[in-house]
Simulated scan of single mutants.
Amino acid sequence: MRLFIRLVILFSLAVGLAVGARFNPGNVVLFYPPYRIDLSLNFFLFLMLVLFVVLYLVIRTIVTTQTMPRKVAAYRQGKRERDGNKALRESLKALFEGRFGHAEKAALRAIELPENTGVASLIGARAAHHMGQFERRDAWFASIEDDAPHKTARLVSMTELLVDQHQAEQALEAVKELNASGTRHIQVLRWALKANQQAKKWPEVLKLVRTLDKHRALHPALSNRLRELAYEDLLKDHGHDVESIRRVWYEIPAADRKNRFVAFTAAKTFNARGLHEDARTIVEKTLVEEWDDRLMRVYRDASAAEGSAALLSQIEHCERWTEQRPTDPELALTLGTLCLKQKLWGKAQRHMEQALSDAIESRTVREANLKLAQLHEALGQAEEAAQHYRQCAIATLL
C-alpha cells in the first residue's frame, strides 16, 4: 500500500512538472564575452539539478572514502568481539559439559578479546586442572595475576583447585592473600576449612568450624565430626605434659566435652599419662549424658588401686549402671574386672560369665576368657584356668 501511494505521488509530481514546464516561456542568457549562451529556463533548471546530483555524488564519494578505514576497523573490532564472546560462551558450555579439552581451546580463542582475558583464563585454568595439567593451570592463573578486577575470582579459584589437588600450604597462601584483601565470604571460609584440615592445623579448623556454624553453613554431622578430629589431634599431641593435657581439656567448651568420642579420646590420653583419676571423672560425667561401650573399656583401664576408696566407688558406679543396663556385656566385664581387682571372687566370676554369655564382639569374648582364666588361676583352679586360656586363644584367632 505504501509503495502504491509513493508511486501515485511520484507520477503526480511528474505530471505537475511537465504541465508547469509546458507553460513556462522564460529564458536564461549567459554572457562571457565574446560568448553568449541562450537557454530555456526549463533546460537551465534541469542542468542545475544534474549539477547538484553530480556534486552530491562526488562529495559523498570523497566522504565515504575518508571514513572507510574507520568503518573497516569498526567492522573488524565488532567481528572480533562477536567471535570472542561466542568462543567464551562455547568454553563455558564445554566446561559445564565436562569437555575440558574443548573448553580450553575455546578459552584460547576467547582470550584474543582483551575484555574476556580474565574470565577466559579462569575457564582455561579450571579445564586444565580437571585434565591434570597443573603447569598449564598455573600458567593460566599467571596470565591474570595483575588483573585487579579478577583478583578475587583468581584467588578463590586457586584455593579451590589447590585444595582439590591436596596442596594445602599453597591453598593457605591464597587464603591469606584473600583475607588481606578483606574477602571472607562463606565459600572462602569453606575452602579455608578444607585447606587447614588437609594441613592438619586443627586450632584453625576449630575456629573456622565455629564461624561457619554461626552462619549455619555446615551440616551438623560434618561440624561435629570435624570438632572430634580436631580435639583428638589436640589431645593426642605427644608434646603435651600433664598440665598441658589438662589445660587443653578444660579449654574445650563444656558442650563439646560431653561428646562421647571426645570424652573417650581424652580419657584414653589421661590414662596414657597415668592420670587415671581424671580419666574416671571424664567417663563418669559423660556416661550420665550418653552411653558408649568404648568409655567402659577406658573405665576398666582407669581402675584405681586395690583396696582404695576410688576402686570401691568405681564398683558402686558400675552396679548402679547395671540396674539400667543389665545385659550390657562391656559393663558386666568392667564390673567383673573391678571385682577381680578387689578380690571379690564370687561377684567377679558371676559378672564375667554374664559378660561372656552376652558378648558379641570377639574382643569382649577374648578379654572375658582371659580375666576368668586369671581368676581361676588365683583360686588355684588350674584346669578351669587352662580351659579359659584355650577359649581366649581361639577368640584371638577369629
Rank of each mutant, 00 (worst) to 15 (best):
V54E: 01
A348T: 13
R227P: 00
R210A: 15
S223N: 08
D301G: 13
H388W: 07
F31Q: 14
D138H: 11
D358V: 00
E306S: 09
V288A: 15
R60D: 08
L155Q: 05
L189M: 15
T337R: 01
K79M: 03
L340K: 11
T65F: 06
V8G: 06
K236I: 00
K71F: 12
V288I: 15
L45M: 09
V283H: 04
D237M: 02
Q391P: 04
S157V: 00
D256E: 05
Q324W: 02
D256K: 09
G307K: 14
Q198I: 11
V175L: 13
Q314H: 03
K347S: 11
W291G: 10
E177R: 14
I252C: 07
A139K: 05
V29M: 13
R280H: 12
A139E: 01
A359I: 03
W191K: 01
K86R: 13
R109T: 07
T337V: 12
R325C: 03
D293R: 12
E316I: 02
D293F: 01
H185I: 04
E173W: 12
G274N: 01
L3A: 11
R363A: 15
A359Q: 01
D358E: 12
N271R: 10
V188H: 09
D83C: 04
D278T: 06
V248G: 04
A254T: 14
V63Y: 08
I144C: 09
Y250I: 05
F261W: 08
R257V: 11
L17Q: 01
L113T: 04
N271K: 12
D83N: 13
R257Q: 09
P326T: 06
R246G: 12
G307F: 10
A174W: 11
I245F: 10
A373D: 06
E169N: 14
T159K: 03
H376E: 06
L222H: 14
R22S: 13
M68F: 00
F31S: 14
L3D: 14
G84Q: 04
M1L: 12
V365K: 10
